[in-house]
Amino acid sequence: MPISRNRLIVVALVATHALLLLAYTLPQSWVPTRLQGVAQRYVRPLFHQQWNLFAPDPPLCACSIEVGLSDGIWQPIISPQEHYLVRRMARPLADHIHDRNQHGDTVVMPVLAQALRRLTRDLEHPSTVRFRSVSRCVVDPAHPEGRSLEIIELVLP
């Protein structure tokens, strides 16, 4: 019967796609290594997706980069009034720099340094500005309003 055959084809195609998407997006410990490889090859080129925003836990540290101006004043590299897409781009930069700071590396990777300079190119004397990483981390998740402050001066190559 044509209907049954067509339905079977549709079910097979949809099920295979869904299975490979699941293998790609679920926690790695859930998926056999071999299936992970197949899923990578199928999903990565066209159907890449990640569902890890605020998961498995929301970030405990709010990281940002601050800019030191010549008059000694420090200001956020991205103002809270900045466009939400630009603010969103600055966050992973700051997170990445913070992660490296945690491993004792305060020299910013060239590609990130380039991004930081682009963010400050509209300042009055962009070549003289200094940068520092500021992280406000939750100490007790039951009282998240009390955050510890950590400031690390950055070295740009």
Binding site: P58, P59, A62, S64, P80, R87, R91, P141, P144
Partner: peptide, 11 residues
């Protein structure tokens, strides 16, 4: 705890 943590994140 998650919503509380996200709510206190300045971003």
């Amino acid at each position: 705890f998650s919503v509380g943590i996200v709510a206190t994140d300045p971003d």
